[in-house]
Simulated assay, not measured.
Amino acid sequence: MSTGAERDRALATYDVIGGPPRRELTALVDLAAQVAGVPFATVNLLSSRHQHQVATAGFQGGTTPCDDAMCRQVVESGQPIMLDDASLDPRFADNPWTTGEIADVKYYGSHPLRTPDGVVIGTLCVFDSEAHQVTDEAARGLSLLADRVVDVLELELASRRLSEVNARLSTSNERLANFAGQVSHDLKNPLTSISLSLEALEMEVTDDYQVDTVARARRGVERMTDMIGNLLDFAAQGEAPGDELVDLATEIELALDDLAGRIDRSLVRVEPLPTVRGDASQLRSVLMNLIDNAAKFTLVGEQPEVEVASVSADGFHRIEVRDRGRGIPEEKTERVFAPLARLDKTVEGSGIGLATCRRIIEAHGGTMGVDPRDGGGSVFWFRLPAVS
């Protein structure tokens, strides 16, 4: 049997008491009245103290004390009651709903409204001021419609929760955009200084190896500047990516070139990668971030061991970056993609990288996640539509 406190909590969750009647509930009580062949029907919700008629057919609903409610018997027992003439039933003979004090109920049918958690919060009730026979069809119809009442409440609850999630997501995106604006100055100024220094150095060096090294460094700075600009614009505005053909094999080489000071190229084994549609700079930044993370989270005292591979199926390319690092507990595999989340604060970083990566991939029409790797480590992956 459901307690009053349990009903109060469930009803507070559904948030259906006190507002105007829900159109869907009104339609259901109208149908219930037709199925039973009676003029009156209602959705009764019982809190610990009151009965609330939140949708009615044939009369104006209201709120009455629980002690007077005929449907209290159904809620407390969890069993339906169907009666040809409720005034002849000992349970209701002195009830103000049958004596004429409130109403003159004769025919009475009431079915419990049970939530998915098993709490009976009220009833779908049909009644008439005249007695007549209860039919099997009416009993079955009332049972089915009672389930639909709960479905409506659950659907509205799910919709409201989705709206709340969307609001939180919007707030997270605003935080991401604010963060992007705050760090843009700090990111771009050092790159400008480095670029100017490399330009001056390029005019001084004459050794072929040094000239090549400086030129590579300048190209890296230029790509980094371009990448930061694109990422900051994306984080701040959420613009859709481009629709150019992007050779991921080329982008991974550029990414490894830019990561040369953080991970030795020989420690990254790259299998053939496909061509996809999108923004080359953004997709390169995703590859860079995943490879850089694989290097950062390598176990102390060990060399990074990274594999980049692609598997194609069902119209999608799945790109995998596999490492032999510390791994991620299963219960935290989604948290790593939350904006500003940092599971391991001993490793440098802002916690913005994976959140931005997922946002980029989703904007490209794909998905992103992480799985444990057999033998230890993690497999970060993203799926992108194959080029048609």
Rank of each mutant, 00 (worst) to 15 (best):
Glu24Ala: 15
Leu25Phe: 08
Thr26His: 07
Ala27Phe: 04
Val29Lys: 02
Val29Trp: 10
Asp30Gly: 05
Leu31Thr: 12
Ala33Met: 04
Ala33Arg: 03
Ala33Thr: 05
Gln34Ile: 11
Val35Arg: 00
Val35Met: 00
Val35Gln: 00
Ala36Ser: 15
Gly37Cys: 02
Val38Asn: 01
Val38Glu: 04
Pro39Met: 06
Phe40Thr: 10
Ala41His: 01
Ala41Gly: 10
Thr42Ile: 12
Val43Gly: 01
Val43Thr: 08
Asn44Lys: 04
Asn44Ser: 15
Asn44Met: 08
Leu45Cys: 09
Leu46Lys: 03
Ser47Val: 09
His50Phe: 12
Gln51Trp: 06
Gln51Ile: 08
His52Phe: 13
His52Lys: 06
His52Leu: 10
Gln53Cys: 13
Val54Ser: 04
Val54Met: 05
Ala55Asp: 02
Ala55Val: 07
Thr56Leu: 10
Thr56Pro: 02
Gly58Pro: 01
Gly61Phe: 12
Gly61Asn: 08
Gly62Trp: 04
Thr63Tyr: 00
Thr63Lys: 11
Pro65Leu: 13
Pro65Asp: 12
Pro65Gln: 11
Pro65Val: 08
Cys66Glu: 11
Asp67Val: 15
Asp68Cys: 01
Asp68Lys: 10
Ala69Met: 05
Ala69Asp: 02
Met70Gln: 04
Cys71Leu: 06
Arg72Leu: 12
Gln73His: 15
Gln73Gly: 00
Gln73Ile: 09
Val75Leu: 11
Glu76His: 12
Glu76Phe: 07
Ser77Ala: 13
Gly78Tyr: 06
Gln79Ala: 14
Pro80Gly: 03
Met82Asn: 13
Met82Tyr: 15
Asp84Trp: 01
Asp84Asn: 12
Asp85Cys: 08
Asp85Ser: 09
Ala86Lys: 06
Ala86Glu: 03
Leu88Gly: 13
Leu88Tyr: 06
Asp89Thr: 09
Arg91Ala: 14
Ala93Phe: 12
Asn95Ser: 11
Asn95Ile: 07
Asn95Trp: 10
Pro96Leu: 06
Pro96Glu: 03
Thr98Cys: 14
Thr98Glu: 04
Thr98Ile: 05
Gly100Glu: 08
Gly100Tyr: 12
Ile102Val: 13
Ala103Cys: 08
Lys106Phe: 10
Lys106His: 15
Ser110His: 06
His111Gln: 14
His111Ser: 13
Pro112Ile: 02
Thr115Lys: 00
Thr115His: 06
Pro116Cys: 08
Gly118Met: 07
Val120Met: 05
Val120Leu: 09
Ile121Trp: 00
Ile121Arg: 01
Thr123Ile: 03
Leu124Cys: 03
Leu124Glu: 00
Cys125Met: 02
Val126Glu: 01
Phe127Thr: 07
Asp128Glu: 09
Ser129Met: 09
Ser129Cys: 11
Ala131Pro: 05
